[in-house]
């Protein structure tokens, strides 16, 4: 991780290789990534993260109970439209998400369709005969409905997920939702553990391989192998967590009930408007479709 020897103040050139290497790893998921220079018309990024979570929330709850096809389809369309207009997503990533979404619908439709109890779809057209098994049109439609519901829920969470950082969501929760900052910021600090543990697990695997744990074959040996990684990983994790906790204590974490917030995450009129419009749209879809 630390390749460059940046002795000088701005020795960015010396540190460039390290930067390139870590950039690749952090690109996957960076809870700290901040959306500072997103163009204004990508409005979702300029809303309070609470608004992008609260707006779609009733729709998500509703989707848990709906059984029809048009409703989830409408919510899915709404979410996709909002994301297309209001979210700054790199074209490659957008394409990836679209492909993943379509694949998800297809896969879930097929599997739910095959597993669905045919009695619920009795009387509909038989699409496929395999021996005793009959795939009914009704089953497939039930599968499609379920697939659309799940995909729509995912798309609705992406409205908040793609447009605000974890840090900002925590800040907004602390500032507007009375979440104790000790809980919010501890959760954020815990994000830093993930890459460290991933690296540590790789090293432990390699170490056990060197010791000759590769020997056994089959599922029991595999389970035993996984289990043998747990103790060293946990021992390291507990020690690390303890050190981080001491370092945070030593820097006044939890000294007072509140803390200075340098980054205000304002809750403005536009946030209220967004939530209200979203709820209206939700009600309209519920009533009309």
């Amino acid at each position: 991780m630390s390749a460059g020897s940046a002795t000088e103040v701005g020795a960015t050139t010396a540190a460039a290789p390290a930067t390139a290497a870590t950039a690749a790893t952090t690109a996957r998921f960076d809870p700290y990534a901040s959306a500072t220079d997103v163009p204004r018309r990508r409005f979702l990024h300029h809303l309070n993260p609470l608004a992008t979570v609260l707006g779609p929330l009733p729709a998500m709850v509703l989707l848990l109970f709906t059984r029809s096809i048009p409703q989830p389809l409408a919510f899915l369309a709404l979410a996709v439209l909002l994301l297309l207009v209001g979210a700054a997503v790199a074209p490659r990533r957008a394409l990836g998400l679209a492909v993943a979404g379509i694949a998800m619908v297809a896969l879930l439709t097929a599997s739910f369709g095959f597993w669905a109890d045919p009695r619920h779809a009795a009387g509909t057209t038989v699409l496929l005969w395999i021996g005793d098994y009959r795939l009914l049109e009704g089953s497939l439609l039930t599968g499609l409905a379920t697939a659309l519901r799940l995909t729509a829920v995912v798309a609705l969470t992406l409205i908040g997920g793609l447009t605000s950082s974890g840090v900002d969501l925590v800040r907004a929760l602390v500032q507007h939702a009375r979440l104790p900052y000790r809980i919010g910021y501890t959760a954020l600090a815990a994000f830093r553990f993930v890459p460290r543990f991933r690296y540590e697990l790789d090293v432990i695997r390699a170490a056990h391989r060197v010791r000759g744990m590769t020997g056994g074959r089959g599922p029991i040996a595999a389970v035993r192998r996984q289990f043998s990684y747990v103790i060293p990983l946990l021992a390291g994790a507990i020690r690390h967590a303890e050190r981080v906790a001491h370092a945070m204590d030593s820097r006044a974490f939890g000294a007072f009930r509140t803390r200075t917030e340098r980054h205000r995450i304002p809750f403005r009129a536009r946030d209220v408007v967004f939530i209200a419009l979203f709820w209206l749209a939700t009600a309209a879809i519920l009533l009309l479709l």
Binding site: Y32, L188, A189, V244, R251, F253, F256, R259, T260, E261
Partner: peptide
């Protein structure tokens, strides 16, 4: 190190001290 940027990291202590 507990935050996501160099600046936030240095601000962390004073912020906690209000």
């Amino acid at each position: 190190i507990v935050t996501g940027t160099v600046l936030d990291e240095v601000c962390f202590g004073p912020e906690n001290l209000l």
